[in-house]
């Protein structure tokens, strides 16, 4: 019996999740569509005053990104839970937290990256000045992985429940708040033209912290959900 090294297990799992997502391309677009739609609703709701739209723009983009991430979270473990793949992971010789990290990374590449690519376009529509768009992109690239990482704990805890959706948002959204605060604050500060290295550093710290801790918590939660 040949043994698989940890790195190849990681890359295999990542590749598997990406291929599975690619086979279901229609589902792939859903979070992105949701992101664009929610963002488009805000100007319709609050009026077309350009100054007002600019003031709420960064916040709207980030809240929409938050909701889109939340909406797509359930897909992270759902199908693997239903068909028993997760139980096979539990039996694997490798640490579950590393395997979980591969799944989180795949989830972010499927749902976080498209938001990142669509964001500049939406930022233009919401009158965010072009000078502030690099900062927005930077907050998204640092912030959206945190959303996937924190979210994975919530999904792992609720995956066994029949109506886990509402509970998931109750568990996860309060934990998303620090990311939201610092990300939008960074964009707003850069619109005024003040350096944003402080907020960016805190976001980076959140990313590193959750990268270390979240997979462990997710692995433990999965063990409980499958027990």
């Amino acid at each position: 019996m040949s043994t698989l090294s940890l790195t190849s297990a990681f890359t295999l799992l990542l590749k598997r999740d990406l291929v599975l997502a690619y086979r279901r391309r229609a589902e792939l677009v859903n979070p992105l569509l949701f992101f664009v739609l929610v963002t488009a609703m805000f100007p319709l709701g609050i009026g077309n005053d350009p100054k007002l739209i600019q003031a709420v723009g960064p916040g709207v983009i980030w809240v929409a990104a938050l909701l889109a991430a939340l909406l797509s979270l359930d897909t992270m473990f759902r199908s693997d839970f239903d068909d028993g793949t997760l139980e096979q992971f539990m039996l694997s010789a490798h640490p579950i937290s590393v395997l979980v990290l591969a799944k989180i990374l795949a989830h972010w590449m499927i749902t976080g990256l498209p938001l990142f690519i669509a964001a500049p376009l939406l930022a233009m529509m919401l009158n965010v000045p072009t000078d502030a768009i690099p900062t927005l992109m930077l907050t998204l690239v640092l912030g959206t992985p945190v959303l996937s990482l924190i979210g994975s704990v919530g999904v792992a805890l609720t995956v066994g429940l029949r109506r886990g959706g509402v509970i998931l948002s109750l568990l996860v959204l309060p934990l998303y708040v620090p990311v939201l605060i610092f990300a939008t604050d960074a964009v707003k500060t850069s619109i005024v033209g003040i350096p944003t290295s402080a907020q960016i550093s805190i976001l980076a710290a959140m990313l590193i912290g959750s990268l270390v801790l979240a997979p462990l918590a997710t692995a433990a939660s999965l063990r409980i959900s499958l027990s």
């Binding site: 924190i150 704990v153 568990l171 309060p174 918590a217 939660s221 409980i224 959900s225 027990s227």
Partner: peptide, 10 residues
């Protein structure tokens, strides 16, 4: 056990 993890995360 699930809420133990949640309390620690929170």
């Amino acid at each position: 056990r699930a809420i133990s993890i949640l309390a620690l995360v929170g």
